[in-house]
Every structure is written in structure tokens, then in C-alpha cells.
Design a protein around this nucleic acid. Structure first.
Lengths: 336, 336
DNA sequence: CACTTTATCCGAAACGTTTCGGATAGTTAA
DNA sequence: TTAACTATCCGAAACGTTTCGGATAAAGTG
């Protein structure tokens, strides 16, 4: 546990000089600097980030608030992909990552601001937060730099990265329409999620632009869960058999819909077309494989981190980034 | 940013008393304690963990070294599951998690000990490290408390959690033997991974105990990759068509094997049986679904964290934990 | 009454950095 | 020659805690 002080003793200079030498200041002689560097290496010195953080009031760490890291969320590893992206960027830009779990009640005892201030994180990335989460309000009022994944809130200190969910949903529904479908239902996710509202909007726009009437009772809530989606689709199918296509706001729900159809003896895509959203790993493995709207969650994470660091270093021109989505055609949709 | 000092001023006591009041020491009057607590709440105080860590020489954080958080590793989310388990336990036991990425060359500039000491982590969990990784040697020599996932190294300060990989592999192969197979090949993973050695051992034991000769050239290396496994199985099949079953050391490789068979016009399981290892999510979604050896990675992570915290708090009786594996029968194996 | 206890409190040092405001000696410009 | 620079260094304060070793006064003990 050698400190700057140890080095200063060996080198016969003050701690000030050691500090300045190590940090590349110009007011230290090249020879002394070399000597100090050598001694530091020899003594196997590594700086104490706690002490440094204490005086500098920053810690080179980014806080990561994730929900959906529980046992159940293993099926769609969107969360993991985002995390990988963040991690990648963060280590490139020389920050460290500290993980907060917002699912745990334990951590819920602390407010958002407390959480951040205690650990002196320089900035925060938030992923998977719901619109009605009290944390969100705090985020907007706080002055801690923050980037939200998939929630478009922008203030002086908070930015976001997202895909254009309206456009994405529109693409999906337009694809169905191009295939000749007119009776298109939608399985949406929890409407406490921002993306749900957006995808619904895209669905409605696509229909309207093509002169198709939106029917309220054809829009059902699958809560982003496979099981739930299966149930609602089951009752949807029995009440309105004229439906020929279903747009699902997530692949997981699309898989639920798939099961519902199979249970009803309908074959996908011949009897009914299903299109999903996300392009999760499973999408290409289920039978029939899912046609879907792909979003690159790894990139989403990467961009989120990149944006945050830009903001921290004062070189962010704008505080949001919008990524592209892409239609991926597989086997679950067909022309009628 | 209220500090303990601010509180002391308002309360008219010394910082010592505030500190001791907040930390529940007995030598402070209940009334003053109450007053202090109230003021603290009112001033919205939260302690500075940096300052605390500096003087206490510990930080209530656990370092997490993971490899396999890159773009490619999205398919098997074993890593993610472990991470979820760790996260869950860690937040229950009131620690925070700091993430180090060992893939990045950036972080590789620092030694393991540097990484840990700089951040003053109390302990470390390491996941996905290879046997020939220089970090591993450092871990064993260092005095930083550490728990390894799936590498059985035990010293005064390091422990591990793993499954019995020999037994797991043995179960798999025995299952094949029970189904009447005698000509059983093995696709192993990189032999720089500890689990590979173990699973190979289990394979050999199972064969020997049943009087079947182990053939060296029936054991091939798929490097834990789907593509690679496909290739080696392809050449295996053409050179030794008498093989009736393949034991793969991971589900991902089993999927590669599956593809290889299909490409050769063999139908699984009728022409050839395939058994995997891990029970990843995809295992139940591929066709035919994979019979495999399940290990509960969430629990693995949870136990790793639990063990580490036990060690940190001096209440670990033993420094290793062994988890169970389970045979999961699906469609990829059949009796001959 | 002269002590020992007990209940409360506090001052100051310590943790390992960074940085502000000089200090010193040699060099340059006028 | 003298004033102004320049290059190089350093002392000390500051960051926000914890904790050791007392200090004070009231209460108990014989």
C-alpha cells in the first residue's frame, strides 16, 4: 500500500511534486519526473481513488440503474445486451461502472439522489425504468448528469437514447398492410412504459395513412409478458376471428401470441400473420421464426454511455441520440 | 451536499457525536441522537462513502471481473444469469457492485491487484476467467478476498463455487449408455477452461465404468463455439460414421453439432443422439430440443456473492460451495 | 467525605490525494 | 545594475469521515 508520501520520501521531494509529476504537470523538471515515475513503478504504486475522489469531488465512475435483473428476466436478454454495450464504451473511455439494483427493496430505501451522492458517481445511466417510477421524477429534478435508455426526457443535465418507436411500429404495420392485411390487431406492452405509447401511435398512424379504421377493442395489453400475451390473444381470437394479422410490441409477446394461435389450431403464417418487435435471440429460433423489427440494444447501450461521457466532458452538442430500427423478414408473416 | 459538520453545527454538538449518533454507538444520549437523526433527515444528509472508505480502508463494494461481455457472447446468457444472481445477493447483503471488464485491452494495462486496490474493493468475484490468464496467478498470490466461479482454487483468501462437472458429464454420458449407445464421441470446449478438463474426465469415467474404450480421436475441440463445433463434427462424422451419439460440453456446441448433422442429412435423434451441457435458454427452442445437463447459473452467482460476503464478515466455515446439476430430457436423444 | 463509576460528550489526528499561493535561484531584458 | 521572468519546487489547507484518548459532571459506594 505505497502512497504518494512514500514516493516523496524516497525521491527526496515533496508530495506536491510527486503528485504533479504523476499527473503530467509542466512545472516539474523532466529528470525529477523520470525519477519519480521510476520509483513509483518500483514501489508498485497505485493511486487511491477514494482519496482522489474526495478532494476532486468526482470519481470517474458511472452509476448504472437497471431494473429487470431478476431471475425471471432471463428470457429476453435485451437488458444484458444494453449492459454489454455500456460496459464496452465505458471502459474505452476510462470510467468504471457501479451497479445499482432498482428491483431490490433494499435499495429502494434510498432515494435516487442519495444513491448517487453517496457513491459520488459522476453520472448515471438508467435502463428499464417505468414512467410511473418515482425515481424518474427525481432524475428530472436532480442536477446529476443522466442518460435514459428509451425514455425521451431532456433537461439541462439529462439526455436519452432511443430508437424511433413510432417509426418502428409503423414499419411493422405497413409491412403487414403491404402483404394485403387489413384486419390487424395489436398486442401492446404495459402502458406505463414509454415505448408502448410510441408503438401504439405508430400502429395507429400506419392504419390511418392507409385508410384503415382503428378499432379500440383490437388493441390488447400483454404487459410485455409471454404468458399474458398468450391469454389475451386467446380471448381476442375467439371474439374476433376476422383478424388476419397481429402486431406485437415485443418478441416475447409475439411468442405468446404464437402459442395462442397454435393452441387454437391456427397455423402461422398461413391462417394468421404475426410480427414482433426487438429481434431477441429467440426470434430466429422459434417455429415459425419471427418476422420482427430489430433494434440493436448493444449499440443502444454503447451510445448511451458515449453520450453520457460526452456530457460529462462538456462536449455533447445535443443531449439525445436516435438509433435506427430495421425490418427483419422471417417466416411468421405471409401475403393474403 | 450537507456534511456531518453541518449537522453538528445545527445540533450544537461536535462532529464526533454526530458520527457516533448516526452509527448507533451507545455513548450518546437518546435525546441528542433523536435530535441529530431528525436534523440529518431534514437536511437530507447522506454520508460520503469516499471519505468513509478512506479512513475505514474498506468501501462496501465488491469488484466483479467478467469476461464474455462482448458483442458476440449474447447467445448464451450464462454470464448474464450469473450476474443477476450476484447482483441479487449483493444488494440483499448491502454491498455495491463495481464492474471491471477484463476483455478490454484498456483495463489490461493494470494488474489485478492494482485494479482492486485503486478502487479499494473489499472483495472480488471472478467469472469466466481462463486457466492461462495471468490474472489467475495474481489472484492466488494476492491477499484480496476473492471467489472464483467455476474454478476450484482455494487459499486462505480465495474460495470458489462450482458444480461437479465430472459428475455432470458422467450423468450425460451414462444417460446415453443407458439408451444403448456405445459409440459416443465428445465435443469438448477450449482446454484452457477448467470445466473442459473436468467434463472430459467425467466422459472418460463413464465410458470406462461401462467397459467402453475411450478413443482419442473421437474427442474433438469445439472451443465452446457453435461454428467451430459444427466444423469439427462435420469432419468427425465423415471420418467415423459409426458414431451414434455425441456428448457436447456446452449447449452452444450441441447446436453446432445439430447443424452439422442436419447438413449431413442425418436426423436427430433417429440417426444420431446429441446431448448438451448448461441448459441455456435456446436449448428448449431449437428443433429438436436439446437433452442436456442443467446448471443453475443464477444460483451460482448468488452463492458466489453469498460466500464472498461470508468470507468478508468472517463467518464462512468453508471456502467453497458445490452446486447440483440435473439431467433434463428433451428430444435430441433416443434409444437404439 | 473521598473515592470510583457511569453517562455523555469532545478535540485532534488520521486516511491519501490535489491545489493554491507562494518561495527560491537562475536567466533575461532594459 | 536592476527589475522582471522563468523554471522548479514546496507548505499547508482542504475534502468528509472515523476513532482514540481523554474531559466533564453527575451518580453511586464505602
Amino acid at each position: 500500500m505505497t502512497t504518494i508520501k512514500d514516493i516523496s520520501k524516497v525521491a527526496g521531494v515533496s508530495v506536491t511534486t510527486v503528485s504533479r509529476a504523476l499527473n503530467g504537470y509542466s512545472d516539474v523538471n523532466e529528470e525529477t519526473r523520470k525519477k519519480i515515475l521510476e520509483i513509483a513503478k518500483q514501489l508498485n504504486y497505485s493511486p487511491n481513488t477514494l482519496a482522489r475522489g474526495l478532494v476532486m469531488k468526482k470519481s470517474q465512475t458511472i452509476g448504472l440503474l437497471v431494473s429487470g435483473m431478476n431471475r425471471e428476466s432471463v428470457k429476453d436478454n435485451l437488458t444484458f445486451q444494453v449492459l454489454c454495450g455500456i460496459n464496452e464504451c465505458v471502459s474505452v473511455r476510462n470510467y468504471d461502472l457501479i451497479l445499482f439494483n432498482t428491483d431490490s427493496t433494499r435499495q429502494r430505501e434510498k432515494t435516487y439522489t442519495q444513491l448517487c451522492r453517496e457513491r459520488k458517481v459522476d453520472g448515471v445511466i438508467i435502463q428499464g425504468i417505468k414512467l410511473d417510477d418515482p425515481y424518474l421524477k427525481e432524475v428530472m429534478e436532480s442536477d446529476i448528469p443522466c442518460v435514459l435508455v428509451d425514455i425521451p426526457v431532456e433537461t439541462n443535465t439529462v439526455g436519452y437514447v432511443t430508437t424511433d418507436n413510432v417509426l418502428g411500429a409503423k414499419k411493422a404495420v405497413e409491412h403487414l398492410i403491404e402483404l394485403g392485411h387489413q384486419n390487424i390487431a395489436m398486442v401492446n406492452g404495459s402502458n406505463q412504459a414509454f415505448v408502448s405509447k410510441q408503438r401504439l401511435k405508430g400502429y395507429e398512424i400506419a392504419l390511418k395513412e392507409n385508410g384503415i379504421k382503428v378499432k379500440r377493442n383490437w388493441i390488447v395489453d400483454g404487459e410485455f409478458k409471454e404468458e399474458m400475451a398468450k391469454e389475451v390473444v386467446l380471448s381476442l381470437l375467439s371474439s374476433t376471428p376476422e383478424i388476419t394479422a397481429i402486431f406485437c410490441a415485443s418478441d416475447l409477446m409475439a411468442m405468446g401470441a404464437l402459442k395462442a394461435c397454435q393452441e387454437q389450431g391456427l397455423v402461422v403464417p398461413n391462417d394468421i400473420s404475426i410480427i414482433g418487435y426487438d429481434d431477441i435471440l429467440l426470434a430466429s429460433y422459434v417455429t415459425p421464426s419471427l418476422t420482427t423489427i430489430k433494434q440493436d440494444m448493444f449499440e443502444m447501450g454503447y451510445e448511451a454511455a458515449d453520450l453520457l461521457v460526452d456530457m460529462l466532458e462538456g462536449k455533447a452538442k445535443k443531449r439525445h441520440r436516435i438509433l435506427e430500427t430495421k425490418l427483419v423478414q422471417r417466416e411468421s408473416c405471409t401475403r393474403i
